[in-house]
């Protein structure tokens, strides 16, 4: 008999103590990680500030955290040259979101359709490859000519950036559906339509969702680049305007705001995904 079983009756208080100790250790580790993160942030920002103030790096070109903070503060309180900061954020978000939605819907529909209908895939396949090979960001100036300075040209560049990753993932997802699952549903009596809607689409959702995370970033890029090239409102215009007046702090400040916006959107998407994928086994190490 093993020693554990011999001491089993007396083990319970020892065990709870041990469990507590383990929980404490886990908690401590969490705090340590958090503290280290904050410390790292302050170290980097502090170093930057110090180097700029000591004129090791040129503050005019590289700016410094305190100036960037001041710039954000000014924008929040007094507004930007193009109007209030919130309006700029809203414009960019609106363009990115609209472009994202259009791109996602088109990508998913076409991806599933081509994944399911072989004929379509064979006919359209090469053209889609050619379009994908094109560096799509160069389309932004063309869209500016076509659709003008308003939001439409930014939405269009967001759409072309979003469409392809979503399309390829949906296509792949539709192609890689478990063959057993399809065979089983057909035996159970599913029609082609039912296979598409109740087997292919649900099993492609995890593929599609992976692309949604990446593609929202792309939508933001599309909107920002569009605004940067020419616009009347938006965060991209803020970057362009700051650059035009050699205001390095302004460029960094716009970048910081963009990062926050992107992170919030990402958080929202993760939340939705968790609700949608209750059927999936929890991945180990998923809690980052």
């Amino acid at each position: 008999m093993s020693p554990e079983t011999v001491t089993a009756p007396a083990a319970s208080p020892v065990k709870t103590e041990r469990t507590q100790a383990r929980a404490r250790a886990a908690r401590n580790r969490k705090y340590l990680v958090l503290a280290s993160r904050v410390a790292l942030l302050f170290a980097v920002l502090g170093l930057w500030e110090w180097l700029a103030r000591a004129a090791v790096i040129d503050p005019f070109n590289f700016s410094m955290p305190s100036k960037i903070w001041d710039q954000i503060h000014t924008w929040v309180v007094d507004g930007t040259a193009q109007g209030s900061l919130w309006e700029q954020i809203w414009y960019t978000l609106y363009e990115a979101l609209l472009g994202w939605i259009i791109g996602v819907v088109a990508g998913v529909l076409l991806g599933i359709a081509l994944g399911r209908i072989r004929f379509l895939a064979d006919v359209l396949g090469p053209y889609i490859k050619v379009l994908n090979a094109l560096p799509r960001i160069v389309l932004a100036p063309i869209f500016l000519i076509w659709f003008g300075l308003g939001p439409a040209s930014k939405v269009a560049s967001a759409v072309v950036l979003v469409f392809f990753p979503v399309f390829f993932n949906a296509f792949q997802g539709a192609r890689e559906v478990d063959r057993n699952l399809v065979a089983n549903s057909r035996i159970l009596g599913a029609s082609n339509r039912q296979v598409t809607f109740q087997v292919v689409i649900p099993s492609a959702t995890s593929w599609i969702f992976t692309s949604l995370h990446v593609s929202f970033g792309f939508a933001l890029i599309g909107a920002i680049v569009g605004e940067y090239i020419g616009a009347t409102k938006g965060l991209g215009l803020l970057v362009a305007a700051s650059q035009g007046t050699f205001n390095a702090a302004g460029v960094y400040a716009a970048m910081a705001i963009l990062a926050v916006v992107a992170l919030l959107a990402e958080g929202l998407l993760t939340f939705l995904e968790k609700r949608l994928f209750r059927w999936k086994p929890a991945e180990s190490g998923a809690d980052r």
Binding site: N180, L188, A190, Q194
Partner: peptide
């Protein structure tokens, strides 16, 4: 015809009840 496969062929995104309902619902 009914077919029981070697590998798992249940729908992972459906609950147990919904899985068993699938056949009649398809029909």
């Amino acid at each position: 015809v009914g077919f029981v496969f070697q590998q798992d062929a249940v729908f992972p995104w459906r609950t147990v009840l919904s899985n068993v309902m699938a056949g009649p619902r398809f029909r």
